[in-house]
C-alpha cells in the first residue's frame, strides 16, 4: 500500500491499516521472551522477500548466528536473502570489536553516534528502506547517565527520520512500563507493546498497538501465537 511498509505478519497489518507508515520510528517493547526480536526478524525478512526491499537488521544483544538460527527455526532463511543482497544482518558489537581497539567496546558496546555513522554509510550503500535495531536497551548501557542517553537518542531519532528509513526499535522493559528509559516512546512514532500474561493456568501472549502516528490503528489488546511460521496475531480476538 502507498506510503506503508507492510510487515506481512499475519494479523498485524490489519491492526495498523496495512503497514507501518513510511519513514517512521516504531518502538517494539516488551519483557524478555515476548517475541520482540522475532517480530523484527519478520519485518526485515518479509520486506526483503515480499516487497523486494533491502533491509538492515542491527543486532547488539544476540550474535549473528543466534539470529540466523532463530529465524531459520520459523522458516526465514535470512542467510539466503543476505547472499541476494536484500538483507544485511549486522552484529554491530562484534564488528566494532574487530575493527577498533576502543576500550569501551571490549564488551561490544556501541553508542548512538556509532550507529549513526554506520547507518549513514550503509543506507546509502544498500538503499535499505527498513531497519531493525535490536535493541535500544543494549545501546543505553553505553551511557553513564540517563540524561546523556536521552539526548543522544533524540539526535539519533532525528537522523533516522531524515534518512527516510522505516525503522523498528526494540526495547526491553520490566514490569508494566512502556519503555526502559521512559523516553523511547516519545521519540517514536508508534509503540507496539508485546507481553504475556497468566490466565487460567496458561501463559497467553498479547500484543497492543498503544500509539501510532499518521494512521488509524486498533488500540485493543490482541492475543498472538507463535506457530511454525512465526508470529500470528489474531485481530478478531480481543482480551479484556
Amino acid at each position: 500500500m502507498k506510503g506503508r511498509k507492510a510487515t506481512h505478519i499475519p494479523g498485524l497489518d490489519e491492526l495498523i491499516c496495512d503497514g507501518l507508515p513510511e519513514g517512521t520510528i516504531n518502538l517494539i517493547t516488551g519483557p524478555a521472551g515476548s517475541a520482540k526480536s522475532l517480530m523484527g526478524m519478520h519485518y526485515v525478512y518479509n520486506g526483503a522477500k515480499y516487497d523486494n526491499e533491502p533491509s538492515i537488521y542491527l543486532t547488539l544483544e544476540e550474535s549473528r548466528d543466534s539470529i540466523l538460527r532463530a529465524a531459520k527455526a520459523y522458516g526465514m532463511d535470512l542467510e539466503k536473502l543476505e547472499k541476494e543482497g536484500k538483507v544485511y544482518l549486522v552484529d554491530i558489537g562484534k564488528m566494532r570489536v574487530e575493527c577498533t581497539a576502543s576500550e569501551e567496546l571490549e564488551w561490544g558496546l556501541a553508542s548512538f553516534e556509532t550507529l549513526q555513522d554506520f547507518l549513514k554509510n550503509h543506507i546509502s550503500f544498500s538503499h535499505a528502506t527498513r531497519l531493525v535495531l535490536d535493541s535500544v536497551t543494549a545501546v543505553g548501557v553505553y551511557y553513564k547517565s540517563t540524561e546523556l542517553m536521552r539526548r543522544e537518542l533524540f539526535k539519533f531519532a532525528r537522523f533516522l527520520k531524515g534518512s527516510g528509513i522505516t525503522s523498528m526499535i526494540i526495547s526491553e522493559v520490566i514490569g508494566d512500563k512502556d519503555s526502559r528509559y521512559g523516553i523511547e516512546e516519545f521519540i517514536a512514532d508508534s509503540l507496539i507493546k508485546m507481553d504475556y500474561e497468566s490466565t487460567s493456568g496458561e501463559y497467553r501472549r498479547t500484543v497492543t498497538v498503544k500509539k501510532m502516528r499518521f494512521t488509524k490503528h486498533d488500540p485493543l489488546k490482541h492475543p498472538f501465537l507463535i506457530m511454525e511460521n512465526g508470529i500470528e496475531i489474531s485481530p478478531d480476538e480481543v482480551i479484556g
Binding site: S200, G201, E202, R205, I226, M227, E237
Partner: peptide, 23 residues
Amino acid sequence: GVERDGHALKSSKILSNLGIAIN
C-alpha cells in the same frame, strides 16, 4: 496455544486460543 492435528485444530483451554483456532 493452538496445535494442528491433521486437519483438526486443537486449542488449549483459554478461550482466546479457541477463538484463534476458530479463526
